[in-house]
Design a protein around this nucleic acid. Structure first.
Lengths: 331, 331
DNA sequence: ATGAAAGCGCTAACAC
DNA sequence: GTGTTAGCGCTTTCAT
């Protein structure tokens, strides 16, 4: 273990506070003489002293750590978001304690508690389906909290997300304009509000055009089942479908596998929510709705910093618009 | 803020130590009467008391936090690895403080320091190119340390990785067997040992078969340059190349973009290090060397736990074998 | 069976 | 200019 501040003080025959002031660059305002300050700095340098951040946090009440809770850090949406969140937080000298919920409420609640126990100063959270109570508790506790990607229905919270409904409308309308008549949608069997918005957009547009909807809800938590297989079966049963709208990245991957298996790549129109670097490698290249990941991360961090400065700041929402990226699969 | 242990003690008119013992399930060995113990438990339950983990850590010297330092958490290799590391660590009741180095040494050193300041109990690290000194310092400090993916040349450390050389040999030999004659390799201009091993395997195999090598070293850190463009140019200049071996996932993506641009998908044999869920969506489906991500994560965590138990345990290496996944691109 | 007291390493108000 | 002191919230030893 490294030396402590009192050992340094003892060694130099000064008091702990003198050392502390110097270490924290408050030599001036603490009116420490140039000479002692330098002597202390030299010694610190010599022995390579590093303060114990835990002790400092306990004393100051500031941990300089924030918690990031996502669904799955290995995901192509959450991974890059996490990277950018980390980068923006670093500019404010915060570090990140992260966890993946894998969509599990119980786990999510545990994670939140552990993070609070560790005195994180704030939390950035992509909540699971049924976190209403947990989030409500957090709000009461006044811990700075930013939700992103999805929010909690009927709860006033800080939130950063994208225009799920409008962007999805554009996507479906685009398919209709391109002459597709029987548009199906594949989504997950989850109440996540962003997924509900995407679904609602699909339904509304089809209804407005007197088209019949055809939705496959694929299981989201069950790890044993193979969504690609399920979609293959579903597609076979619904041969009239001529285009598909996927609600999110992993659903899209599974869907594309199914389409490929059936050799329908060029027969079906496709557009998906979320971009993946590889969508343009596939033939035909897949059209998508691209969420601006870095901007979302940036907004979340900025909102958090504001909340940190004023814990009574009223909740804010920020919607970052996604852009439609038309590629070959929907021409 | 939640109540503290002394407030509870005061309220219940018992001493802090009594409360502490009960909280930590040591009522028995502390010989606390069933009655008081229950009274304390009830009150704790009632007010929803949660201990301050920071204070506990300071007192015990155990932070129950480990640091995970990767190159890029948004990457399709490191993201899933991070997920699994987190999951395995959770079983041991550890949380993860993470950071991405983006290949930057200076940043990496800073990150290490901040984590040490925060008293992480151990570090799992995918080091950058030139971290020799930093890692040496960590070894001296006796902080439990596990390297993975790459190691530091000439340094005895705990390490988990894959059989880069052998697996790469198999990949290149496979291409030769398939009748490809002019095999090129695309890798990054980095000294990372795992990349060097992959390159060396390629060279050795070609030399053994009296074939000429053709390697493109694409820039790894420069964010302004477009590797796909560079590869397109390189491929045009080297039209005799009939197959390619990519050294890692993101190089592969860039390479596939180039190949696609040139419309050479079916003319070139391709095999890459690292699997991506989408490689089987592309036509032709791309052959690869697949690293067992979960096993790597598991091994790293296990090794760390052993190190935690015995800080003087000699350094261990664990090589987890990758499997070649033959798909259409190399038939 | 329980309490008192010291200590983990640091900060900060105040005294001299 | 610098030292003293009292915490931050917890654990742990030792006395009773």
């Amino acid at each position: 273990m490294s030396m402590s501040i009192s050992e340094i003080a003892k060694h130099l025959k000064v008091s702990k506070s003198t050392v502390s002031l110097v270490i924290n660059g408050k030599a001036e305002e603490g009116r420490i003489s140039k000479a002692s300050a330098q002597r202390i700095r030299d010694y610190i340098e010599e022995i390579g002293y590093k303060p114990n951040a835990l002790a400092k946090s306990l004393a100051t009440g500031k941990s300089r750590t924030i918690g990031l809770i996502v669904e799955n850090i290995g995901d192509s949406f959450f991974g890059p978001i996490a990277l950018h969140i980390e980068e923006y937080l670093r500019k404010h000298e915060y570090q990140v304690l992260y966890s993946s919920t894998m969509g599990d409420n119980k786990l999510a609640a545990e994670i939140v508690q552990t993070m609070l126990d560790k005195q994180v100063e704030g939390i950035i959270l992509a909540p699971t389906d049924a976190m209403h109570d947990e989030v409500e508790r957090m709000l009461k506790s006044k811990i700075p909290l930013i939700l992103f990607d999805r929010k909690i229905p009927n709860l006033q919270t800080n939130y950063v997300g994208t225009n799920n409904y409008e962007a999805s409308r554009l996507a479906v309308e685009h398919l209709l304009e391109r002459g597709y008549k029987k548009i199906g949608m594949v989504t997950i069997d989850s109440q996540q509000p962003q997924m509900q918005d995407r679904l609602r957009a699909y339904r509304d547009v089809l209804a407005e055009h007197d088209c019949k909807e055809q939705v496959l809800y694929t299981s989201f938590l069950d790890k044993t089942h193979d969504p690609a297989k399920e979609m293959t079966k579903w597609l076979k049963k619904n041969p009239h479908i001529d285009a598909l709208f996927f609600s999110t990245n992993y659903v899209c991957i599974a869907g594309l596998k199914a389409i490929r298996k059936l050799g329908q790549e060029h027969a079906l129109g496709v557009i998906t929510f979320d971009d993946l670097e590889v969508l343009e490698l596939i033939r035909p290249q897949i059209s998508c709705i691209r969420q601006p990941l870095e901007k979302i991360a940036q907004a979340a961090v900025q909102m958090l910093m504001e909340q940190l400065l004023d814990k009574d700041k009223p909740a804010t929402e920020k919607i970052i618009k996604s852009k439609i990226q038309i590629r070959e699969s929907s021409l």
